[in-house]
Design a protein around this nucleic acid. Structure first.
Lengths: 182, 182
DNA sequence: TTGCTAAACGGAGAGTGCCTCCGTATTGTT
DNA sequence: AACAATACGGAGGCACTCTCCGTTTAGCAA
């Protein structure tokens, strides 16, 4: 990759992160290009679809998911609290920018999605937490990680769309947690 | 309302229902107007926003919600099955056209939404089912209708976005049901 | 019927976003 | 310095939203 290309690529991602945070994930891409000081052509060459751009943006914070799951697993307390704690963090992670929860959760389980790698990281992290609980024998049977990702992702999606705060989200996560645990 | 206005209003709603079913709720409104044989001006005079048009479309089938709740309440069987049965029908009802679950569930609890009356019908129906279970003493405390509408609506939203079938939705509804019941 | 007015129509067009094409510029190599 | 190869960028085509306003029509009254 040529030096100028690399420069533009990085700049676009940086600006896009900012614009998406301000205006939601359906902000104008021409606007992103303009603010980044490049032509629309350049943006679309690097990121043929909006999805590709999102993918690049999310990279950094999806990296944090695994790490967050590690911490959640080290939690000292009841299994229910462990799970709830993890769910809250999970919701926060996928809600970094508007439209994120819907995007990520809808692509869950779709092998042809451009953001499939992100989704895998998410459901794997959920899987690890579930395995831990299963090892404790406190998890109901026939629960799989994708289902849980969808359930919690669904709550996150609604919370995102309706601008709900943590206090309104928590009781819903409790219902899901109680439904999963024995 | 003048006769020609009434005629156009009805025709637009009818055509829109068809177009939205075919192309999802973000189909072109000019296209709707064209197919209805009216100018865009006419469409926008009757329905200043897309939301207003959706509102009119959904009227007919939101009417069926109350009726469906009645039937669900007459169900003979365990409380868990009653609840699951209702949830499945609820999901089917709000998933009549693409984008419906997200629209309806996101507006839940927002008094300024143009579709607030629809949402009220939905959460009231959920409320009635919950009251029944509460009367049986099989419902956990501190559960309210809007929360449940959001939880189940969240599942419906994800299912709608990812084209999930009933077999994939059911286990998620079971988790929610189990989380709600004692 | 005819005439009148309020109500309603409809389509041209401005504004905006998406995305592509291709002439121009930059990079890095020989 | 010359030359590919690579990348740039913006003009412009297309699609959609929404408005404005000149034209048409419904409904009523004489």
């Amino acid at each position: 990759m040529r030096a100028d290309a690399r420069r533009n690529y990085d700049r676009i991602v940086e600006v896009a992160r900012e614009v998406f945070r301000e205006q939601g994930y359906d902000a104008s891409l021409d606007e992103v290009a303009k603010r980044a000081g490049v032509g629309p052509g350049t943006l679309y060459r690097h990121f043929p679809t909006r999805e590709n751009l999102l993918d690049a943006i999310m990279q950094s914070w999806v990296d944090r998911v695994t790490e967050t799951a590690d911490k959640a697993l080290a939690f000292e307390g009841s299994d229910r609290d462990l799970l709830l704690n993890w769910f809250e963090q999970y919701v926060a992670l996928i809600s970094q920018h508007k439209g994120g929860p819907a995007k990520l959760t809808s692509a869950m389980g779709d092998p042809s999605s451009p953001i499939r790698t992100k989704c895998q990281v998410l459901s794997e992290s959920n899987g690890r937490v579930l395995d831990e609980l299963r090892a404790h024998g406190s998890l109901r049977e026939s629960v799989d990680a994708i289902q849980v990702s969808r359930l919690v992702g669904g709550v996150a999606t609604i919370a995102d769309n309706s601008d709900l705060d943590v206090a309104q989200v928590r009781p819903m996560l409790e219902v899901i947690a109680d439904g999963l645990l024995t």
